[in-house]
Design a protein around this nucleic acid. Structure first.
Lengths: 364, 364
DNA sequence: CTGTTAGCGCCTTCAG
DNA sequence: CTGAAGGCGCTAACAG
């Protein structure tokens, strides 16, 4: 810690003396022979400025190689132009696609993105607060991570209203006041399950997310609804917990394949888990779809190239990301919008039938 | 745009009047009956402070629910505690793993991460400058994106030395002065190719990245080196450009399969492309490895669950991310280190032989 | 159209 | 051990 010798001292000299630090707005003003206010007006295109002044300022900026210090700027304006995005796993290709949309739209609007990956853990309200306050993000987007701390965050918010948008997730009642962007997960999962029922399957298993993961809770709900609607024709629900990961689902599927009587179809709450399940199925020497039908959820870029290609639900991932950013920006830029009580925004999904699903095996 | 009515006016009131804005250090000082200096000392554990004072400050902080304004803080300190990470594709599962390491280590050290995804495009020095200067990141990590603008960024750097670390990438001579963390890509690719040669393959194709992508240039070099070393025993190199993506490689592999005489093995410069290639191979009714051996690079989480499991090169992705952050932090926290001329840090790779490679088909 | 002025919230000398 | 004071770089009134 304690630097010995003259070297350490040297570096601790007062700020003023740092050699040739970056040019400041004052330097530009001096060189251009104008006031700092004019420089400011020039770089922000605000107020009015004569062409002559503008040119001299621009020349000075060029000469000094001046770039505004955005720390000072953000401080002054009270804005960071940073968006905090909280999601369960940056590794999931679905979220990757969502983030592509987020990055594109944010970049277009001059915002940076800070990501907080909860690694599928639930996030405490406190952590979010800290992230938000200490990082001073202008707004926060919660993708599939909102509900665990919904009540907390609401009650602890004696502070100023913070722009929050929720994406991809079942919206708990107490979160209804926040804008959200999502597909109808219940309906989508129901349709996927009905697709299997229509193919004649009666023993359809479901690989869910982590215990009580809100991200997939609605999907399980849709699955159960389909089974119930089919009534006596299908057997009771068989649900196991994957952990939304490839490896977790491989293990979960293995257990499923040991059940007697064995299911004839497996519906996974996301594509990642379907990949894991496919591997477990192959390992047991079973074929897809002849011995086992398989359905995923998300239509990630891997779904179409799996062997066989995966039947799944397509979510407009990039669009969800893009819209979330648009909505958070609106909240940020028009604070009055914070008092609106917006409708959840439901975007369209689509059941993509590929070769991983087929008729139920004979006599089963 | 133009808000009509009194509403618009209201929101434009001077900053002073914003209702109950967050507590400032002055408020805390007033409530605690001390000076702002003491509050500062308390929250930063700097200087000296009597227990009594500390307690009163802490009480005031608690009462006011005070959180330091990090905009002001960063401004004052000239630090953002943000790291800029530039990479070719956040979607690639390899980089996802790298980023897991980055996030973990950065979080541990109190840094936030801003990601710039170049989408495999090359990044101009100007863009990097802008990103760096305007965002005022404390440092920048370039993963597989450095070389295209190496010369540029070096020549345009009349500014202060900026902490830069380069990862996963062939280091061009003019970048040698920057710390870097990477595997030995040439050697790894050579070993993968030799593995195929040892299995008896003589027509081995290579699916490279985008035209001249530095990220995979070394891998192509290793591939060619292995072929040359094997001399007459193997035919000339067959290299096609994928674009590091699943879809791009599927198309590239398709072309490869139409070549006469057809290769008996395909080595892809990353796993993503191997996934695409596998799909193209299956589509042609060919089996892996009986008709076609396939090798990837990265050992992403999908490699082991592919059908058949993929032979590939394992890179310590998380470790690369972690080490990169550690090194950038060192540069940031000990500016004198900027003047060091560090050795590139080579981390260990490993050839993982799985079932996607086998002996060359009879009579070919 | 342009300059002057007054801070934003915090940290850090410098005195006491 | 503590308080007073100055200023980081920029922007936004307010005068001229």
């Amino acid at each position: 810690m304690a630097l010995k010798g003259p070297n350490g001292e040297k570096t601790r000299k007062r700020t003023r003396s740092r050699a040739s630090s970056a040019a400041s707005i004052r330097d530009v003003a001096r060189v251009a022979g104008v006031s700092t206010a004019s420089v400011s007006r020039c770089i922000n295109n605000s107020g009015t400025l004569s062409d002559g002044t503008r040119e001299r300022v621009l020349a000075a900026i060029d000469e000094l190689n001046y770039t505004p210090n955005s720390l000072a700027r953000d401080f002054r304006r009270g804005r960071t132009f940073m968006l905090l995005v909280v999601l369960p796993s940056v590794g999931d290709p679905f979220f990757t696609d969502v983030m592509r949309g987020v990055h594109a739209e944010a970049g277009r609007r001059g915002y940076g993105i800070v990501i907080s990956d909860t690694q599928h853990n639930s996030l405490s309200a406190n952590e979010v607060e800290t992230l938000l306050i200490s990082r001073q993000a202008d707004g926060i987007i919660l993708f599939g991570t909102a509900s665990p701390f919904a009540t907390e965050i609401l009650s602890s918010r004696r502070r100023r209203a913070i722009p929050i948008v929720i994406g991809c997730e079942a919206i708990a009642p107490e979160l209804k006041r926040y804008p959200s962007v999502q597909i109808d997960n219940v309906l989508a999962a129901r349709q996927a399950t009905e697709h299997l029922i229509d193919l004649g399957h009666r023993r359809i298993a479901f690989v869910a997310g982590v215990g009580g993961s809100m991200l997939t809770a609605d999907r399980e709900r849709g699955y159960r609804a389909a089974l119930e609607a089919a009534g006596k024709r299908v057997s009771a629900a068989t649900v196991v917990a994957g952990d939304l990961s490839v490896a977790g689902a491989a293990a979960a599927a293995k257990r499923l394949l040991a059940v007697d009587p064995r299911p004839t179809a497996i519906f996974c709450a996301n594509d990642e888990m379907a990949i894991g399940a496919a591997s477990a199925i192959a390992e047991q020497g079973l074929r897809i779809p002849e011995d086992m039908s398989l359905v995923g959820f998300d239509d990630t870029r891997y779904a179409a190239v799996m062997q066989p290609p995966l039947t799944t639900i397509r979510q407009p991932a990039e669009r969800i990301g893009m819209r979330s950013v648009q909505r958070i920006c609106k909240l940020i830029e028009e604070p009055s919008a914070l008092r609106d009580n917006p409708e959840p925004e439901i975007v369209a999904h689509e059941l993509i039938v590929r070769a991983s699903t087929g008729p139920v095996p004979n006599g089963r």
